[in-house]
Simulated scan of single mutants.
Amino acid sequence: MAKVNWESAKYESSKGQWAIFPQLCKGCGLCIEKCPVKCISWSEELGVYGTPRVKADMEKCIVCGICQMVCPDCAIRVEKKK
């Protein structure tokens, strides 16, 4: 069984940074559905309600921020490198 990790998970690439806050993620999947490059998937770790949280594949991520905009719980933060 997967465990709940309350620390934010950060993923980085040369394009920017993507972070998930598991204490806020309820596992609704809107970010997975709306990602234009399909770089977000379910994680082995759990979110706030014991549901799977998400993770990002930074090799594919274009750091567009759509996932951050559609997340109803502000559980995702995206920062593009300047």
Rank of each mutant, 00 (worst) to 15 (best):
M1A: 07
M1S: 13
K3R: 14
K3M: 12
K3G: 13
V4K: 13
N5K: 09
W6K: 10
W6F: 12
W6E: 04
E7G: 02
E7A: 03
S8M: 14
A9K: 15
A9T: 07
A9C: 00
K10S: 14
Y11Q: 04
Y11T: 06
Y11W: 14
E12D: 08
S13I: 10
S13L: 04
S13F: 14
S14V: 11
S14W: 08
S14G: 01
K15T: 06
K15G: 11
G16F: 11
G16H: 10
G16I: 15
G16R: 11
Q17L: 07
Q17I: 06
Q17S: 15
W18L: 10
W18P: 14
A19Q: 14
A19H: 00
A19Y: 05
I20F: 04
F21A: 05
P22S: 06
Q23L: 14
Q23F: 15
L24T: 00
L24E: 00
C25P: 11
C25T: 03
C25D: 05
C25H: 03
K26N: 06
K26I: 10
K26M: 06
G27F: 06
C28G: 04
G29T: 05
G29D: 03
G29F: 06
L30W: 14
L30S: 06
L30A: 09
C31N: 10
I32Y: 02
I32M: 05
E33L: 15
E33N: 09
K34R: 12
K34N: 11
C35A: 09
K38N: 05
C39A: 11
C39I: 01
C39V: 08
I40D: 01
S41G: 12
S41A: 12
S41M: 09
W42D: 00
E44W: 11
E45F: 04
E45K: 06
E45C: 02
L46A: 03
L46F: 08
L46Q: 00
G47P: 13
V48F: 00
V48C: 02
V48K: 11
Y49W: 08
Y49F: 12
G50S: 09
G50V: 07
G50R: 10
T51S: 13
T51A: 13
R53H: 12
V54S: 13
K55R: 15
K55F: 11
A56N: 15
A56K: 00
M58P: 06
M58A: 02
M58D: 04
M58L: 09
K60V: 12
C61W: 01
C61Q: 01
C61T: 04
I62K: 11
I62Q: 10
V63C: 03
C64H: 13
C64D: 14
G65H: 03
G65R: 08
G65T: 07
I66W: 05
I66S: 05
C67K: 13
Q68Y: 04
Q68N: 09
M69I: 12
M69E: 15
V70Q: 02
C71E: 02
C71N: 05
P72I: 10
D73F: 14
D73Q: 03
C74E: 08
C74A: 06
C74G: 01
A75F: 12
A75S: 15
A75Y: 08
I76P: 07
I76E: 00
R77P: 00
R77V: 14
R77Q: 06
R77D: 04
V78K: 02
V78Y: 00
E79K: 15
K80Q: 15
K80R: 14
K81F: 08
K81Y: 07
K81A: 05
K82A: 11
